[in-house]
């Protein structure tokens, strides 16, 4: 079993490696994760501490300059990485989990359960997602937990749809019937048999969702709906906005950081897509 998994990972890596852009994306991702994990330790500056004069250009003391309150932008970037990644990953995991469960139940059992679950899913799709996220955060008051939850709430329906489609397509196949004949329980069939087959496309969409989640978080922070106790990249853009005219780099730096991160995640997602879905490998 372990050998099988290991060889699976190795061949996955071989396929993934063929896409140079995806490898580049992975490298950037690794750098960002490292920066988020160790940056604040190696560069122990409190991102909220007003250390210098406001709005200074990059210098030896402040490698990326200071913001409108004289706070170190580099420190903000490093601490912000943690928040952006944390919220992005946590929200995507939550959305994937909910989406998978809903999609799997709907696709496997069909009938009225399918109808109810899918109508609910459609219903969430009809509400503009960013508006819904803004609503939820404004109503329950901004905190990391609420922001993560709001992003998950607006993201799960697409996973549910995809998962349902996968489960429906596997449901009718011979091997599932065979399993049933062998007396396996529904839960066993869903978890042990269908799930591993249905997972690859879900993993791809989940990885792309991390990127969207980071963008959504930055939009919320920009509107002033971020958690006031933490620093995030979107918040930093919002801070720089007031001095756009005199210090454009203040919002450009976190903006480019978000761009690179989201780009890297997308590249990895595409690479995974090609590696996991052999049908599409030809592209």
């Amino acid at each position: 079993m372990t050998v099988q998994v290991a060889s699976g990972v190795v061949s996955l890596w071989h396929r993934f490696r063929r896409n140079r852009a995806a490898v580049l994306g992975l490298a950037i991702m690794a750098l960002i994760v490292l920066a988020a994990a160790f940056g604040p330790l190696l560069y122990p500056v409190d991102p909220f501490d007003m250390l210098g004069r406001p709005s200074t250009v990059p210098s030896q003391r402040f490698p990326l300059g200071t913001d409108v309150s004289g706070r170190d932008i580099l420190a903000g970037l490093l601490h912000g990485a943690r928040v952006s990644l944390l919220i992005g990953i946590a929200a995507s995991l939550a959305a994937t989990l909910v989406g998978l469960v809903v999609g799997a139940l709907a696709g496997y059992f069909g009938g009225w359960l399918d109808a109810v679950l899918m109508r609910t899913t459609d219903f969430f799709l009809t509400i503009p997602s960013f508006v819904l996220a803004v609503l939820i955060v404004a109503i329950f008051q901004p905190s990391v937990l609420i922001i993560t939850a709001s992003i998950a709430v607006v993201s799960w329906p697409s996973v549910a749809r995809l998962a349902r489609a996968e489960f429906v397509s596997h449901q009718g196949r011979d091997y599932v019937d065979a399993c049933r004949a062998m007396g396996m329980s529904n839960a066993e069939i869903m978890l042990r048999q269908i799930l591993p087959n249905a997972l690859p496309p879900v993993i791809v969409i989940a990885s792309l969702m991390v990127a969207t989640a980071i963008l959504t978080e930055s939009g919320l922070s920009f509107l002033g709906l971020g958690d006031p106790n933490i620093i995030s990249w979107g918040y930093m853009i919002g801070v720089g906005r007031t001095v756009l005219r005199t210090a454009w780099w203040m919002s450009a730096i976190p903006g480019v950081t978000i761009l690179i991160t989201v780009l890297a995640i997308n590249l990895v997602g595409e690479g995974l897509n090609e590696a996991l879905n052999p049908r599409m490998r030809q592209r």
Partner: peptide
């Protein structure tokens, strides 16, 4: 919640009081 300056002020108060040994949890609404 009247805009940028008030947010900045909240951040400053939190920072300065924490130096004095008063831990401040900021709540946004």
């Amino acid at each position: 919640p009247y805009g940028e300056n008030w947010t900045r002020l909240g951040e400053y108060v939190k920072q300065e009081l924490s130096k004095l040994g008063i831990a401040v949890d900021t709540r946004s609404a």
